[in-house]
Amino acid sequence: MTDAIHNPADELPIKVAARDVTVSYSGKQALHNVSIDIPDRSVTAFIGPSGCGKSTFLRCLNRMNDTIEGAKVGGSLTIDGQEINDKSIDPVVLRASVGMVFQKPNPFPKSIYDNVAYGPRIHGLALSRPELDEIVENALHKAGLWAEVSDRLAHPGTSLSGGQQQRLVIARAIAVNPEVILMDEPCSALDPIATARIEELIDELRENYCIIIVTHSMQQAARVSQQTAFFHMGNLVEYGPTEDIFTNPRDTRTQDYITGRFG
């Protein structure tokens, strides 16, 4: 699939580069030789039918596959040119610099403040309480949640609405100022209004982060992403600028998928 390796947005530096990444769960291969270059400060969407390997690949980027028994990852994956599957790379450090947002909002059973402060606290990023307050406020601002929750930071995170919870989780992820943010179908559990809010937010965050989003909805991919990668049966089928993929797909499978013939 080497022909997929190209940088669709040539003006942006490459953040993440994958070469021949394979993943198997207890011997069952889930991802076949994926190679891809993902640019910084833009949104890259992974689309494809369920079980196509897009989430699996996403979970390779912060080594979340380590937590699954029997998962094996092969090939080379670099962030800023550094091999992340290398023995010398600590998953804790990696994950601190690669934030992740999940399908279902998963705020911890703590207050809103403590949720956002979780990362800075475990990593020891704030030396004093005012410093921590500042980090939390910044993160909530960036996540566009500050106005809604500034008066009830001590309330439990689970008391927020679904969309707010998802933004809280995003705030939690950016509180440690990561380099890459992974989003695994972040809007699939939300109503359309909350979804629109999140999409707006993703667009704003693009300024500062490399964002990779897995989505089921092609409309969403078209709306928020600059690059789109289409996965099918564990293979990366096609990758390019979002416009090209949606208007002029090269592969028939891509075409069938985006025209709704399967998926």
């Binding site: 600590d90 804790v92 450090v93 610099s97 990593h123 990023l125 990561p178």
Partner: peptide, 22 residues
């Protein structure tokens, strides 16, 4: 990797107290 000069601030901040955490 800790001595790579172009390392991101978050990574170096986290690496600092990693030993104690482990």
């Amino acid at each position: 990797m800790t001595d790579t000069p172009d390392i991101s601030p978050i990574r170096s901040a986290v690496s600092k107290n990693l030993g104690a955490r482990y």
